[in-house]
Amino acid sequence: MRISEILSEDRLIESSDYYRLYYSSKYKKALKKVRSQPAVLKKIDQIEDDLKAHGELKNVHSGIHLIANVALPSEYKQADLRGWRSVMLSKKNEIRLVFTLHDEEIDPNTKKPFRVVEIKLGRPSELGYTH
């Protein structure tokens, strides 16, 4: 396959709701706790935009690390999984956004492939790990 064809496919994938953001059950509650912190909210916007478009972070570069050797509970998969990435949002109150990209699935209705990005928000202790 030629590179132009691969790039073309990528664009198609990225513009067709390929990546779907799945928010943990406590995400809204955590968002309300940071509602008066514009810098944190702006960074959350950037992260979500990146994850929605690419399934990974391409435009956010700081405060990212892999949560190594710890399995965090996935509400989407109903299992403890390794390989989550964490982004520091606020040193002051230790708020982190953690996410993981799940394997590709086929939408039973549209028959189109998609991947779920599961996202959690909160302090490490609330998310299931220590730092």
Binding site: R20, L21, Y22, Y23, S24, S25, Y27, K28, L31, K32, R35, L41, I44, D45, E48, E75, Y76
Partner: peptide, 12 residues
């Protein structure tokens, strides 16, 4: 769980 978080934040 696939709610529109950006809209939610914007409204708040």
């Amino acid at each position: 769980p696939f709610f529109d978080a950006k809209k939610y934040r914007r409204h708040i």
